[in-house]
Write a protein that binds this DNA or RNA. Structure first.
Lengths: 151, 151
DNA sequence: CGGTAATAGTTGGTTTTGTAACTAACAAGG
DNA sequence: CCTTGTTAGTTACAAAACCAACTATTACCG
């Protein structure tokens, strides 16, 4: 237990990441919460459907690494609000395909626009190169693929 | 709502930050949970006391941006385990000064060592310069001061 | 086929968090 | 002093997350 070495827990990467994540998410959270009464998981499910147009709960679970129970409840709410439509797969009746309704899509479009603005505000104090590097490192830390694989 | 512009929500910084934070914290979380049955807030309180030796709940709240109810509960648990000692401030009997016991300090020392190792593992695939930049950017995004101000 | 295992999604019960109200102690102005 | 306001910390109740067991359906394999 060497007391006088260089590592300080305040620089511990998971700590810094969590702090940055919490703080940077806060204002945007109040936006989708206040404007649409959505929870974070609902917003995440919504934007995945906005991007990929047609996914099963399992697809979202795999891609976004969200547990299936959270997705199940999020989809239930989104579907009750008629923002998402569920279509049972007739070839495999266990799973169902999810899609945004036009109403759901307009919510998505709105929040996507807001996210874009918000993202710019967060990154404006950094150089474009630094921001690009930051995103690359974050993706790698999250063991996400850098490339966007098609369906 | 321009569909074919460049912004994709998957690059949304709060999303990337949250994913990286969750994934990078996971293994370490199982460590302090499994080894000491601690929650994240308890670990955070512990390491703040490990660094600063003597703080009030409010000090921790301010510095770590943790809500006072969470700290209250964390301190209650840490104190029940005799890892933290509470000393009421006789000049202002509302607040109490918190310190690690020897047992608490040895838990801290152990976890700090583990954190150091874990941090190295997380960052080893990046260059030292990139990691330094990453930490700087994360601190800035969390609106934390870069300098460590003394008590 | 028939039985066991695996998968998609849901539900229930327990923890954990978040929010608001609370107690106790101090501060400040009349 | 004594009312009003503020601060440190705790507690209670509601919302959300977590984990385990459950149903329904398909896959595998003797």
């Amino acid at each position: 237990m060497d007391e006088n070495d260089d590592f300080v827990v305040q620089d511990f990467l998971p700590y810094l990441l969590n702090r940055a994540a919490e703080d940077s998410s806060l204002a945007f959270q109040t936006l989708y919460k206040g404007r649409y009464g959505m929870l974070r998981t609902e917003w995440r499910v919504l934007f995945h459907l906005g991007m990929y147009h047609r996914m099963t709960a399992r697809d979202i679970s795999t891609r976004a690494k969200i547990h299936k129970t959270k997705i199940s409840r999020a989809v239930a709410k989104l579907s009750a609000r008629r923002w998402v439509i569920r279509n049972r797969d007739e070839a495999d009746r266990r799973s169902e395909h999810l899609e945004l309704t036009p109403a759901g899509r307009s919510v998505y479009e709105d929040l996507r626009e807001q996210a874009k603005i918000y993202d710019r505000r967060l990154t404006q104090e950094f150089s474009a190169g630094d921001v690009a590097l930051l995103r690359r490192m974050l993706r790698q830390l999250a063991s996400m693929e850098t490339s966007v694989d098609p369906d």
